[in-house]
Structure formats: C-alpha cells, structure tokens
Design a protein around this nucleic acid. Structure first.
Ligand SMILES: [Mn+2]
Ligand SMILES: [Mn+2]
Ligand SMILES: [Zn+2]
Ligand SMILES: [Zn+2]
Lengths: 136, 136
DNA sequence: AATCTTCTTTAGAATAATTATAAACAACGA
DNA sequence: TCGTTGTTTATAATTATTCTAAAGAAGATT
C-alpha cells in the first residue's frame, strides 16, 4: 500500500477530507524516519520543493493547526518570533542549538526520570519536559 | 537609603542614564520579594497603575531589552504570541499553569539534579531547564 | 549658568507572524 | 448529477514587535 493511501485513510478517520493539499503536507511531514522540527515557513517552502505543488500559506496554517488539534503535531514555543512544530507528539526532551536555531530530540533515557517534589493545590502535572540549550 | 537611590546607582554602573522612566520601571520590576514573570503589556499597564506616570510602549520595549542585555532580566518563550520575562535571571525551573497562563518558579531542590547522558560534538551545554505544565 | 554632546523618549510608521473573511472550489452523500 | 458541507485561496485585518526621526533630558565642558 502506498503512503498516499495511508494518509487518505488517516485523514478520513480524523474527519478531515483528504484533499491534494493535505496529502502533500502529510507526505512532507510524515514520510520520514526521524522526527521533524519545523516552522510554518519551513514547511511552506518544503512543500513547493518536494512536491512541486504550491499550497497557499493560509492552507499551511490551517492544516498545521488542524493536525495539531488532532494530536498529530506538537507545538514548541522556543523562539520568540516563530513557533516551532514537532512531528514527535510524545512528551520528550530537547537540545536547542542556540546558534543554529535547531531542535534535537533527546531520548528519555538520555535524561533519566525527573521527580517533581512540589505541588500546587488543585493542579496536577500534565507534562515534564527538559530543554537543554547548547552553545559552541 | 531609598530604593530609588539604589536604582540610580545600578543604572549608572550599567552606563544607562537614570531617567525617570527607567527608575519607575525599576520600582515596578525590582521592588518585590518574589520573582516576577511578566509580558511587556503587563509591565506597560503596571507602570501606569503603580507609579501614576505613563511611559510610552516603545520605552518599555527599549528598557526591557536594555535590562535583558545587561543580564537583569531573563527571556522565557513559553507562549506562542507574547514573550515572557523573568526577574529571576538564574537558570531555574518552572511550573506553567496552562489555564491561567502563569509561570511559577521551582527551586532547584524541588526538581533535583539532571544528568544529560548525550552530547553533540562541538557543542557544550549552556543551560538545563525543566518546564512542568499544570492542568486542573 | 550657558553651551555642547550624547543618550533617551516618544508618537507614529513599518515589519512580520498569524488569523479572519468571504468567494471559488472540491469532496461527499443522496 | 445535484445539493450540501468542508476546504482552499487571495487578500485584508490583527497583533506583537521594531524602526524612525524629531524633541527632550542628562552629563560634560566651559
Ligand atoms: Mn522533538
Ligand atoms: Mn522564573
Ligand atoms: Zn496549533
Ligand atoms: Zn531581549
């Protein structure tokens, strides 16, 4: 079965119509071995480069947020101006190369378990994530 | 000695002229027991409220970035739209109350030491910070 | 104190990321 | 095929932030 068919299925199961644009975006985002960290603009340009088709910027925003809402993308505010997204939607840790402005996934075993010794009344922990900034 | 005098000294020592605006901003930012997390807009409104004087938005931006550059404020990108700043400039961990959009400092002993078991060639670790998201 | 220089403030314009609008279009079900 | 509903798109609007350039204030020099 071609990847395209898989994406069409997945979109249908998410009650998102499998349009040409969305399938192209899926190909760019999810046809990878490794996790992918990107900004909207990265993605916008990659779609043209990798598929030949141009998708409007508005559609890229719409689709990324639709996928985010469905839980297929994670939002990572690391940079003050542009938002980063991540195809790895699990709770996980990152290196952030400050000079290159690039995110790198850390495996949970690279960091080890973290025990939070404080609690706030009426609130519970939703996620615990470590950010390791790198310099030269 | 009044706090105002202290701020004037500090500004002079940082080769920043002690203007009325900057002193007001210092009073709002640094006359506190606890660490203060804020957005530019929070600060802009607090200045009016707490000092009676109006400082232009451009000056608030200028001053916050001047203080940031001098190391008196820390920048925390937690939210996709507005940047947060922190009067606690040490490396430290945070709770983030997602609903209230509020940051809360964690003490280092509330989290414990974190050992990073991975390294990237040519890069060294600049900081290690934990973000704990809270929900109801 | 008067003058000069340099830094700072400010209103308003400019920029850049993102979101809203609404008309054309495409997918779906009947 | 037709009607309905969801999607794409160009474009306008919005929002946070930065830039600009003129007026003002601080500090140094006489
Ligand atoms: Mn990641
Ligand atoms: Mn803090
Ligand atoms: Zn989103
Ligand atoms: Zn700054």
């Amino acid at each position: 079965m071609t990847s395209k068919q898989v994406f069409i299925e997945k979109l249908r199961n998410s009650s998102l119509r499998p349009t040409k644009q969305r399938i192209n975006i899926c190909e760019v985002l999810f046809n990878r071995d490794k996790t992918f960290h990107f900004t909207i603009n990265d993605l916008f340009n990659l779609i043209k480069d990798k598929t030949g088709d141009k998708v409007s910027l508005a559609t890229v925003y719409n689709t990324v947020h639709a996928f985010h809402k469905k839980g297929y993308l994670k939002e990572i505010p690391i940079n003050s101006n542009q938002t980063y997204f991540d195809t790895n939607v699990t709770d996980h840790h990152h290196f952030f190369d400050v000079k290159e402005e690039k995110l790198i996934d850390l495996k949970n075993e690279d960091v080890g378990p973290i025990e939070i010794q404080k609690s706030i009344p009426g609130k519970k922990i939703k996620s615990v994530e470590v950010l390791v900034k790198l310099e030269d």
